[in-house]
Computed example of a mutant assay.
Amino acid sequence: MSHTTADHRRPALVRRAAVSVAGAAALATVAGAYSPSHAYAEPTAADQPLTDFSDCPALPAGADPARWRCEVHTAAPLLTMGKVTVTLAPITMTHAEGPLPDGTNGQVWGAMHSTPTAVAGGFPAAVGEHVRLRGLAIQPEYGGRSDFYTGRFSLRFRLLSPLLAPNCPIGANAPIDFQLKRSGPSQWVSQDPPLIKFSAYDDTFSAPAAEHCGPLAKVLNQRLGLPAASGNLMTYDAAYTFKTYDQLPAR
């Protein structure tokens, strides 16, 4: 899933920001303000260690390792989507950014890691004449689009339950696009190694219905309140670190 500015999905966005502005730093300072206290999720992702650079992607041909940096950030988002509110287990994203040989800016996607989070209340569903309560979990997955200069990225949310088909995502055909806005100033926790905390949010995205979930799909979407065109919110407490490629171990 690696891409550079040659990727047809977002070529203009990748070239838009100035070289001197790091992508995650730009995400941490995008314009906007948000005052309600629930913009700040608990626990904060700054409590998570950021030391693993193993997902740093290969650089584009001709890129200068001293001018490209690999950024690793971890967030514990608070997600309200339809009728469900859940604090997701921490997710980690890795990407690289820097100037391309022609002088324009580039980004290369690395990887995203996440784990399932239980949804309170589970999934009550009728089985014969009885209603059974089964576990329900949600797991974010990379949606194939990202621009860390502008704070835009896409996610799918896989739903997991013994009552559902194994491939049951929200955003199956069209992932959910998030446009994060700042909800507070960024904070340097450490200079060496660099560690920066920030908080952001998006309350403008639409949430589609879950798809490919089997015969209980209609009941599931009623339980989740999906699709939901409005009333959704993701708050994004995060921390990130970085190294230039000349500081990374040789592969």
Rank of each mutant, 00 (worst) to 15 (best):
S2A: 15
P99C: 10
T4Y: 01
P175A: 08
A63I: 08
A22D: 05
D202T: 01
P193T: 08
P162H: 02
P194V: 05
H130Y: 12
A58I: 03
G110Q: 03
A61D: 06
P166I: 01
A217V: 15
A250I: 07
E97M: 14
G121H: 15
V86C: 04
Y34K: 00
G110N: 05
M93W: 00
A165E: 09
V127F: 04
P60H: 02
V127G: 01
A46M: 06
L133N: 12
G143V: 06
A31S: 13
I91T: 14
A24Q: 02
S230I: 02
P90N: 14
R182L: 00
V189Q: 14
D64P: 03
R158H: 14
L164F: 13
M112Q: 14
C70P: 15
M112P: 09
G110I: 05
Y245P: 08
F123Y: 14
I91D: 07
A25Q: 03
Y40I: 09
G214F: 14
A229N: 02
D202L: 03
W188Q: 15
F123S: 04
S161V: 10
G106V: 13
A75Y: 05
R156T: 07
A200L: 00
P99V: 06
R15Q: 14
A33F: 01
L13H: 12
I196L: 12
V189R: 15
F153T: 10
G121E: 12
A26S: 11
P77S: 15
V86Q: 01
R16E: 08
R156P: 11
A61P: 00
